[in-house]
């Protein structure tokens, strides 16, 4: 049995499941972080038994797991605390219950990791960007010079240096829709650091990440699964709308996205980096400058690979499905 943890709206999950269904007779149980289920859960020593709605399974049934999206998937196991008379106590108890929940989750993940093939990162979120940049340099990859500061004067000196800097979120950027059916969304993108950005900012500001702008020939999006790499080059430079951040789509003239052959030494370094971050799948964002130098920007363990896979015919969905059914056939 293959266990998939995801969100209800994730299209890539459906595409991978269709491949699993096409390639094997494996039973698939998909649990969405944003849906409520009736859950029965017993963990004893090194085993567990779970029932999620109609699907009941034990640890020995699970051959492979795909941690695609979401944090912990068994919502509502713990009651929420309601004590309107005692808000401080309620907050404290809620915090305690959250800790209980997290401990349970970590143990559950650990059991899965020890007994079955787990694809994806357990905490479900991106590793610390600044840590990634440090590790990247350790394995010999170039990164654009950066600094973090809460001083406006620091930012002003960067502007004055004339080198060109961008600023972006240190953690995951904001990516939020009002409601799933509305078109109103809020996004943070990578923005160029210009004098107008600092207008009205006090001398002490919120600590901000600044990164030297690298004049790129093109961007790279590198999907990896274990030691297999699929790279695509994105040509966004000719279009002012997408020059700094390619996610600002130009729908009239979408950027060119074409397959790219990574130099073996870059691939080897990315492999080392993935290993040092304990990631077995995800995608790297890189840029290549006019002199052919490669820079690592960040890694995203749960990115949307669907559009790249389709446009460059990379068959990533099939790769993932094959990885997930591999253990199944041997049973």
């Amino acid at each position: 049995m293959i266990l998939i943890f995801s969100n209800s709206g994730d299209p890539s999950t459906l595409d991978v499941m269709r491949w699993i269904d096409h390639l094997s007779d494996a039973k698939v149980v998909r649990i969405n972080a944003d849906e409520e289920y009736s859950v029965e859960l017993t963990i004893s020593d090194d085993d567990f038994s779970v029932r999620v709605d109609e699907d009941a399974f034990g640890l020995e049934d699970v051959t492979s797991v795909w941690l695609r999206k979401g944090g912990f998937w068994f919502k509502g196991l713990f009651p929420s605390v309601a004590a309107p008379e005692h808000p401080a106590l309620a907050r404290h108890l809620q915090h305690k219950l959250d800790l209980e929940n997290r401990t349970l989750r970590d143990h559950f993940h650990d059991l899965l990791r020890r007994r079955s093939a787990v694809l994806g990162s357990a905490n479900g979120s991106a590793p610390n960007k600044l840590v990634v940049l440090g590790r990247a340099r350790e394995v010999g990859l170039r990164t654009p010079p950066y600094s973090v500061s809460n001083l406006r004067s620091h930012a002003q000196s960067l502007v004055a240096s004339g080198c060109g800097y961008v600023t972006k979120a240190m953690s995951d950027g904001l990516y939020l829709f009002d409601t799933t059916e509305s078109r109103t969304g809020y996004f943070t993108y990578t923005e160029a650091l210009e004098p107008r950005v600092l207008e009205g900012v006090g001398e002490r500001m919120a600590p901000s990440l600044f990164q030297r702008y690298v004049d790129k020939a093109f961007e790279l999006r590198v999907f990896f699964l274990d030691d297999q790499f699929r790279a695509a080059a994105i040509f966004s430079q000719s279009d002012a709308q997408t020059r700094v951040d390619y996610r600002k789509y130009n729908s009239e003239r979408p950027n060119r996205v074409v397959p790219f052959r990574l130099p073996p030494e870059i691939e080897a370094k990315l492999s080392l980096l993935a290993r040092s971050l304990d990631l077995n799948t995800g995608s790297f964002d890189m840029i290549v400058d006019a002199h052919g130098e490669y820079y690592l920007l960040e890694v995203n363990p749960v990115g949307q690979f669907g559009p790249l896979s389709e446009r460059c015919n990379m068959a990533i969905e099939r790769m993932i499905a094959e990885r997930l059914v591999a253990r199944e056939q041997r049973v």
């Binding site: 080059a233 074409v258 397959p259 790219f260 052959r261 130099p263 446009r311 460059c312 015919n313 990379m314 068959a315």
Partner: peptide, 9 residues
Amino acid sequence: AAFPEISRA
């Protein structure tokens, strides 16, 4: 040379 064709599969 670094830009191969899109696979025709």
